[in-house]
Amino acid sequence: MTKFLLTLHVLAAIVAVGPVTVAASMFPPAARRVRTGSDGPDTAGVGTVRLLHRICRVYSGLGLAVPLLGFATAAAMGVLGDGWLVTSIALTAAAAGVLVAFVLPRQDELLEQVTAEQPVERGHTVQLAMFTGVFNLLWATVTVLMIVRPGSTTGA
């Protein structure tokens, strides 16, 4: 049962968190590239930004399966109290907090701007890129802790 839960946990992380990290990273430069001008709306650019935001929203919801399956796996493995897991849980909560409090709301704001054909200020996209980088760095750290955990019996 443990191997099955671990497999589901890893698959959920790849399928749900992977697209969020990629789409969130692509969002700021895509928003910067949306043209505004007298020749009408940049429908392709707005469509790209809208799609990237939708990917982030939908897959972040699906990403809730990752910690749920992680808790089930950890319970089955008997490692719920291990330091590396507690650290991973805290970093996962921090990553979710950054996504919900900083990344998605700023994407909402920028999407409103490009939809209303307002120019996007570079400072706003730079700030969003910074928060996205923090989110991605937190997830990368959790991934490393999951692979190279202290006391691992894998010999790594």
Rank of each mutant, 00 (worst) to 15 (best):
H9S: 08
A30E: 00
A76H: 05
G37A: 09
W84A: 10
A95E: 02
T92H: 05
H9F: 06
V22M: 11
I14K: 08
R54I: 07
V114K: 04
A24E: 03
Y59T: 12
V86T: 12
T48L: 09
T21F: 14
A95L: 00
A74K: 09
S88W: 02
D108W: 09
L11K: 08
R57V: 15
F102A: 03
D82K: 13
V98C: 00
E109G: 03
A16P: 02
A13W: 11
R50P: 00
V100Y: 06
T7A: 15
A74E: 00
A13Y: 10
I14G: 05
F102G: 07
T7I: 13
G81Y: 05
C56N: 15
L69F: 04
S60K: 04
V34L: 04
G47S: 11
E112R: 15
V46L: 08
T92S: 12
Y59D: 11
E112M: 09
R32Y: 03
L52W: 02
G63V: 09
E109C: 06
V100Q: 01
V98D: 01
R57S: 09
G78V: 11
I14H: 10
T48R: 15
T87D: 07
G97I: 00
M77Q: 14
V79I: 14
V103K: 01
S25H: 14
F71W: 11
V86D: 01
P29D: 01
A12P: 02
E112H: 12
L111E: 12
L51V: 11
T7F: 15
A24M: 13
S60N: 08
P105L: 12
A93M: 13
P67L: 08
H9N: 01
P105Q: 06
A23W: 07
G40A: 05
M1D: 08
G97Q: 01
T36N: 02
P19C: 14
F27W: 07
L110K: 04
V10F: 12
A76N: 04
R35H: 07
R50M: 10
V22D: 06
G63L: 08
G63A: 03
T115Y: 08
I89F: 14
A72Y: 03
L110E: 01
A30Q: 06
T21P: 07
V103N: 01
R106D: 10
P67K: 02
L5K: 01
L5S: 05
D108K: 14
T2Q: 11
L11D: 06
T43C: 02
F4H: 09
A23Y: 10
V15T: 09
V10T: 08
S60F: 10
M26E: 01
P41C: 12
V34E: 01
V34I: 10
T115F: 07
V66Y: 02
L51N: 13
L51A: 15
L99M: 03
A16T: 04
T115A: 13
V17S: 05
V103Y: 00
V86I: 15
A65N: 02
I89H: 04
G37P: 04
F102I: 02
V58Y: 13
I14T: 14
V58G: 09
A12I: 04
G18C: 13
V114I: 12
H9A: 09
P41R: 14
L52H: 04
Q113R: 15
D39A: 15
L110Q: 00
V66H: 05
V66T: 03
T87Y: 03
G18R: 13
P19T: 13
G45I: 03
R50L: 10
P29I: 12
